[in-house]
Design a protein around this nucleic acid. Structure first.
Lengths: 124, 124, 124, 124
DNA sequence: GTGGTCTAGACCACG
DNA sequence: GTGGTCTAGACCACT
């Protein structure tokens, strides 16, 4: 369920963050569901527990999960979760839009792109 | 003509790459035009020559410029240059928009974000 | 009467301490009244007896209850009990308000925050 | 300038965060000012560089400082800084106000406390 | 030199 | 068992 490419140049903990974020977005992980423990996940994918801890900490900062000492780590409750997910996705949109604006690409062009992608998505 | 923000957390060489790419896109730098030498540019903007060299190397790898030992560095002659750059920016927008759409974020929300960023950009 | 939120990231024993402290403050628990035994309380709310024991120990250290071996646990006989608790809460507010004032945050802003939190609390 | 109590139960990195936050609030550290490097600060106060790094990372997440690889760590620029400080202080007010509300303390009482503290602050 | 990431191994508080 | 913190020491990218 959780995999990382140890040889990739993108940090392992970021891969994990993306990995889990995607599982949440797709609904594979539901609100309040328990995540594997830091140690067990580290053992499973063959990395150091500190690295998993860093990924979990990152996810907690983003409001996607919460960690409780002595009990484990859990997906955030539904209401807080959807809000956190939306904030994260919009934030990720910020930089590339600015880039486009700065490069002189017209607003209509970007708007058309958005429109097109949403139309395609609807067909699925 | 060439500026870097020493206060940004973005690596200086990346700022330079973006800087020159933008000048090409906007037409301020034309195909086959000569770029300042590594040393002179480094002196001008007060940074380490190694950093300029790294930026030029990056640009050469992307096919935007070419370096001729002993003679200097030049903008690539390609015709489809600007077109390629714009396509690159739009391509970078693709993934995050899809993510947003997939996460159930409404199209209007994304549109508003685009609108807002373009308005801010205009003020600069 | 005693409840804990297993989903909260706050340690369970701290929730229990707060819970019982609040019951004392509100007068629901009177001086010298007997508390449920460690084992029965643990069974009732479905947590580990060690956790309840830790909470009781904490309350005894604070002078709010006393444990008598073989007989059970009881609310402390103190008269100024509730008063002390309220003062404690207000005292906890002191520092952050001063910090806010010192940081130049306007009084209205703080007032609005208080108002907002009390409105939310009312809905529960 | 920077001190920590190695024997305290509050984590070293949190002490550092509070320490630096206070220096910023008091104006002892100004926008864009450079902070000591992770390694040098760790050496100075006799702790592990990772611990300093964790504190700096925390401060960056809060928007109070920014870190640039190869150049160093700096206090955030003025505009972003004041905003981050305000957000932090208001967030710190949240929990104790909720506590007070939950403990049945009347809103007017809290309001009066706020009023009183602001009046005292004004006299300074 | 700077920050960013990772490992190995340890101790603590919580349940 | 769980997460939270810390140390020691390493390698990498950037300046």
């Amino acid at each position: 369920m959780f995999t990382v490419d140890i040889r990739s140049r993108v940090p392992i903990y970021e891969q994990l963050v993306k990995n889990i974020t995607d599982l949440i977005t797709s609904g594979a992980l539901s609100p309040d569901e328990q995540l594997p423990s830091v140690r067990s996940l580290a053992r499973d994918i063959g990395i150091n527990p500190n690295t998993v801890q860093k990924a979990y900490q990152d996810l907690e900062n983003k409001g996607l999960i919460y960690q409780a000492a002595g009990r484990g780590s859990f997906i955030a409750p539904g209401d807080a979760l959807t809000q956190a997910v939306i904030e994260g996705k919009l934030k990720a949109l910020n930089a590339p839009i600015k880039e486009a604006a700065y490069a002189g690409i017209k607003k209509v062009t970007v708007m058309e792109l958005v429109d097109q992608i949403y139309s395609e998505e609807q067909k699925l």
